[in-house]
Design a protein around this nucleic acid. Structure first.
Lengths: 173, 173
DNA sequence: GTCTATAAACAGATAGAC
DNA sequence: GTCTATCTGTTTATAGAC
């Protein structure tokens, strides 16, 4: 692993656990086993490092839900959406914790980012003859947001049982 | 209003909007129209000020949901719980934004804080003959958490329509 | 209670050697 | 690419006068 990668790794870890503002470049350098100046050589500024980290993994979200947008079976659309927060591997938690943290720490909330998914969900519910498809889609989306928060904040969640419950609730079994 | 109260008010506002770490005591003093030293006179440290702010409003959460715990009609329990995030006046948003922010910024997450409410919800669902009352309670709680997040992060939510939809969904009309 | 002045540590960032 | 040394402004916090 190059020193640049070590900085990215240490930055992700510290930003995700301690927060962006609360993490000094000095702390990152120590954690990465690197001189502080190297951070600025590679990323110009502390914000540059943050951008690089966010960018590096930003496609992750799109990659996660684009298969759903392409799905043509409405039941499968809902099934896959439900599985979203429940199948993310724990090794990715750090990255996602950072994303959720940044929503609150910086004002960088992009409500439109999940709009394509909500629209697709809305389509799926309509297809299945559900009464208020748009509101059902918003409802499910908000629930999954809440569930993801709880998981990332360390609440014990039985993922298997939760998924079974949801599949039953949405009549997908 | 005393200067101490002015500090508390400015602190709440700034911590809620900019975050705890990103807000300097100097900024707070300026916003409150007070010398910086006065903050330390009254609250000993920056963290002391934070504690005072959190404590001052901590009972707010309890006061919000204790009426629900005392309710004996299961339908009314669910109705009141749903109304929780939808009836908080916008003037209280600042305080709640701070609470949500702190969950991520400090590691001070108290998952047990909402447990009494979840237990009561679970009781209500059981009383109404719902199949998986415990999981239904968790589900509703997570949804409301997600909804509250969205609202506090500035998403446009039609509260009236949302409440109508939920009352219909939970067969409370 | 409240201020001015200031200490001491720490922040992000740069210069220049290797 | 990587380091040591250092600059400059800011941060939390205190001392002491009123």
């Amino acid at each position: 692993m190059t020193k640049k990668e070590k900085i990215l790794e240490a930055g992700l870890k510290l930003f995700a656990t301690e927060g962006y503002t609360a993490t000094s470049t000095n702390k990152i350098a120590n954690a990465a086993g690197v001189s502080e100046a190297l951070i600025f050589r590679h990323f110009l500024s502390k914000e540059g490092l943050l951008s690089a980290i966010v960018k590096e993994g930003e496609s992750a979200f799109k990659n996660l839900y684009t298969p759903i947008l392409k799905e043509s079976d409405p039941k499968e659309v809902i099934r896959l959406t439900i599985a979203l927060p429940l199948t993310v591997p724990e090794s990715h938690y750090e990255f996602w914790r950072l994303q959720f943290r940044l929503k609150w720490e910086l004002q960088s909330v992009n409500h439109k980012k999940s709009q394509p998914l909500i629209d697709k969900l809305s389509w799926a519910f309509a297809e299945l003859g559900v009464a208020h498809p748009k509101q059902e889609a918003e409802f499910l989306s908000d629930y999954l947001e809440g569930l993801a928060s709880q998981i990332l904040l360390g609440k014990e969640v039985n993922k298997k049982k939760t998924e079974e419950f949801l599949l039953l609730k949405y009549k997908l079994t």
